[in-house]
Write a protein that binds this DNA or RNA. Structure first.
Lengths: 258, 258
DNA sequence: TGGGGTGTTCTGCATAGGCGAACGTCTGGC
DNA sequence: GCCAGACGTTCGCCTATGCAGAACACCCCA
């Protein structure tokens, strides 16, 4: 809404793993602004601690995001509620477990717990993001959105094929999401990466909105044998987390009628 | 510089461990603004993903912070360079090791590595902050600042006594910092917390500026016996990290004369 | 069923901030 | 070693932006 904040956000978006350091002119060119405008935004973000000015007058992300992240991590109800449940899953079944949310069209890992088996799925750092259309987590999270928004998202960021199994057509994605809504869970059978399979289930808050998703990530050979079992376990875990967030299917089923 | 960004930063500052959720009126009251102004900032921050709107129309930190933090963590040269050195320290000596920076007057932990000994110092989450005047890390970081800034900081946030050993007078702090600059390291002998001691040394970048500090945290009974040894080890580690950041004492000693 | 507390919307006025041009500085290549 | 080009920074004008206050809509509790 406020132009300046939107601009600041667009600037911060530029700082990525691929290009973590930017100069004033580069930012101005990348965003099509006057150099002095870019300079003002960069200066202000640096003064506020969100960016760090190198001695050469270039810019990197600043330490303040670390401070914010700490507050986020230690106060967010979702993490507090979910972590013990997820730890239990790893302890019992030894498979890699993920918790993720949808952030501006991308699946963002909030919590990752490395499996304990000899052959296991390696996890990425929290904050890393995935394509929503090609992952079980993503499909579950998209299933919480109205179809129009899914269409917009697909149009905006595309549906690239990551493996031969990836869904690349919008209508196919929409019908898959209808299935996910009906069943209450999603599979990813080597759609993101060969040899990798996932099952994910939605986490809902007290008003029934899908706020996150939990998943098992399992090597394909082990997954084929016990798909059903993994599905039931992850559904149960998602239900437990949702209930701890105040989700009450009965009360909300009643609301749906009204 | 830009008022709107400064305001946004002040709003984000409100979100803390003690009060991680704010409403529009609360923000307006806390900052002395009109309700509509607070509303505009909160809306914009939420639209940009920095805040998350709860179903009740209140606000919490948003997931985008997590995404930024990940980029920071994976691209910051300091962490990349320091982590292997610090891991070595823990492996060899088993004591808790910290890496910290100064962020708007507070000591912020960037990296923490838990010691492996039976009796060890428990670490806090990265992003947590400490009083600079009462910690070894803080004194090292302050030693990189001109005296005026230290005086301003002390005036602004005070020098509370955390233990009987804490420095609580500005002139005493300044003379301590002079010693730190001369010696090149700082001790904390139960100044922050009873039973806890630290040694810290400065990490410098290629232009010689103190950009961070590394420390050992050791129980007092073990520290008394081998203060000197810990000091030498941490000095060596700091030197190694600094050199990997491009610090070259000889080249800079030459510059000082000019 | 009302009242006080929310979050949200509207409109006009003043100022904050965007632009483009000029400045100072550094680097690298002839 | 010098000049040329690029960079980050500064300045001042003009316009658009975003601030304030009051009115609105909503929810929860008494």
């Amino acid at each position: 809404m406020l132009g300046t904040i939107d601009k600041a956000a667009r600037v911060l978006d530029l700082f990525s793993l691929e290009k973590p350091e930017w100069g004033v002119s580069e930012v101005a060119a990348a965003l099509g602004w006057a150099k002095s405008s870019a300079h003002a935004i960069l200066c202000s973000l640096a003064a506020a601690g969100f960016l760090h000015r190198t001695p050469q007058g270039r810019y990197r992300l600043g330490w303040r995001v670390l401070v914010l992240n700490r507050v986020l991590n230690e106060t967010t109800p979702l993490k507090k509620v979910a972590t013990p449940v997820l730890e239990n899953l790893v302890r019992h079944y030894g498979e890699t477990v993920h918790l993720a949310v949808l952030e501006r069209g991308r699946v963002v890992y909030v919590e990752k717990l490395q499996g304990t088996r000899a052959v296991r799925v390696e996890v990425t750092f929290p904050g890393a993001s995935l394509w929503p259309h090609a992952s079980a987590l993503g499909k579950v999270l998209l299933s919480g959105l109205p179809d129009e928004e899914v269409v917009d998202l697909a149009a905006y960021q595309g549906l690239p094929a990551l493996t031969p199994n990836t869904i690349t057509q919008v209508d196919e994605l929409l019908s898959e999401l209808r299935g996910v809504r009906r069943r209450g869970y999603a599979y990813d059978i080597e759609e993101y990466m060969p040899e990798l399979c996932c099952v994910a289930a939605p986490v809902r808050n007290h008003v029934g909105t899908v706020v996150a998703a939990v998943s098992f990530s399992v090597p394909v050979y082990r997954f084929r044998e016990s798909k059903e079992a993994y599905k039931n376990i992850i559904l149960e875990a998602a239900k437990r987390i949702s209930e701890n967030l105040g989700y009450d299917p009965k009360a909300l089923g009643f609301l749906k009628l009204a």
